[in-house]
């Protein structure tokens, strides 16, 4: 493995049993939230992970941090296999990898002051004590643009943007190498989104963080990311430099997604050809055979039904797309859907 890869997933699967709890506890089906993901997050980069609701992007982010158990494949963090990590090793991973959550109103314990919340990682990992701890909390609050004097206040006394800053300060307290932002700006107002985006960029540069920025907002992802990965039905379908994926996507799904993003330019909007996709995203409990996008793809042709496409070079250097339009590469589908879980 290359030295510049910090986090890496190979054939990662997160399947949830669904339906029928009861006494027998036998699953009625499998929800393939993450279904065979290969992903490398490079040291010091910001990788944007986009996709629509239900595509598994959030589950993937949680699985990479071992916050959701994976059911297949492996995860590596800084050269160490962390797939089955337990005890002290797992605790150390928690220090080195942090998470910022979507809803800043729900992610802070309403009964704990800002100082208590931000200090939690310090206490858990025994990093600072007493006066040192208070000083570090003040330092962290300042780092995220909050006045240290607010340390004694409770979350409800803050606005959404301020709370999100507290959440970021908590995630940074253990001096992590890796930060996952799971829809971290989705519930904020536009002007506040900009503040938080700028803050994340500044922190990333200043602290040399590696950032996984998960969002459904392609504009925001394009703005903050060095590379973009696009997810559809539990699989990465396109990945590459942000400029390439953001302006010249190679996978029909990415093209449709990009064309659907509304732009604040009336003249441009009027001329724009929008690719309107047919129907809804299939359920992750019933993934189509062959290419999983084929039920909605405007370019569907013969191999799409039978061959599950693998990521292959397409477009700009470093850009990859999982689409037969760039040559038929992938796993032939067997008659039953179980064949889908196999991955090259």
């Amino acid at each position: 493995m290359s030295d510049d890869v910090l986090v890496s997933a190979r054939g990662l699967e997160v399947h949830f049993p669904i339906g029928r709890g009861g006494l027998r506890r036998k699953p009625a089906g499998l929800l393939r939230a993450v279904d065979g993901v290969d992903l490398d997050v490079l040291r010091g980069e910001t990788l944007g992970l986009v996709g629509e609701s239900g595509c598994g992007k959030s589950t993937l982010g949680n699985a990479l941090l071992r916050l959701v158990p994976s059911t297949g494949g492996s995860i590596t963090f800084d050269g160490t296999d962390i797939t089955g990590l337990e005890g002290r090793g797992l605790k150390e991973l928690r220090r080195r990898a942090g998470m910022v959550f979507q809803d800043p109103f729900a992610s802070l314990d309403p009964r704990r002051t800002v100082a208590q919340t931000v200090a939690e990682p310090l206490e858990v990992h025994g990093l600072r004590k007493g006066r040192d701890k208070a000083a570090r909390v003040a330092e962290l609050l300042e780092l995220v643009g909050l006045d240290p004097a607010v340390a004694g206040r409770y979350p409800h006394e803050f606005s959404g943007g301020q709370r999100q800053r507290v959440g970021i300060a908590r995630a940074l307290a253990g001096e992590p190498d890796f930060l996952v932002c799971d829809e971290a700006i989705a519930s904020l107002d536009v002007s506040v989104q900009a503040q938080v985006l700028n803050l994340l960029r500044r922190l990333q540069r200043r602290l040399g963080l590696t950032l996984l920025f998960i969002s459904h907002d392609l504009s925001a992802v394009r703005h903050i990311s060095d590379r973009i990965a696009v997810m559809y039905l539990g699989r990465i379908v396109e990945i590459g430099p942000a400029s390439a994926v953001g302006s010249d996507p190679q996978m029909p799904y990415t093209q449709a997604l990009l064309s659907a993003v509304p732009l604040p330019h009336p003249a441009l909007e009027r001329q724009r050809e929008r690719i309107v996709l047919r129907g809804d995203v299939p359920s992750p409990a019933a993934v189509p055979s062959g290419c999983r996008f084929r039920t909605r793809c405007p370019y569907v042709f013969e191999p799409c039904d039978d061959v599950d496409p693998a990521l292959q070079p397409a477009g700009a250097p470093g850009q990859q797309a999982a689409c037969h339009l760039h040559g038929v590469v992938g796993t032939p589908a067997t008659a039953d859907a179980e064949g889908l879980t196999a991955h090259p």
């Binding site: 536009v190 900009a194 503040q195 500044r202 504009s219 394009r222 703005h223 903050i224 400029s243």
Partner: peptide, 27 residues
């Protein structure tokens, strides 16, 4: 301010560098 705060897919990078977004301070 509102328009400046919007990440704009149409005109992003200047010499490969995406400038910071303009923000409206305060609430």
């Amino acid at each position: 301010g509102l328009l400046g705060a919007l990440p704009d897919l149409a005109q992003p990078a200047v010499d490969g560098v995406v400038p910071d977004l303009a923000t409206v301070p305060g609430t």
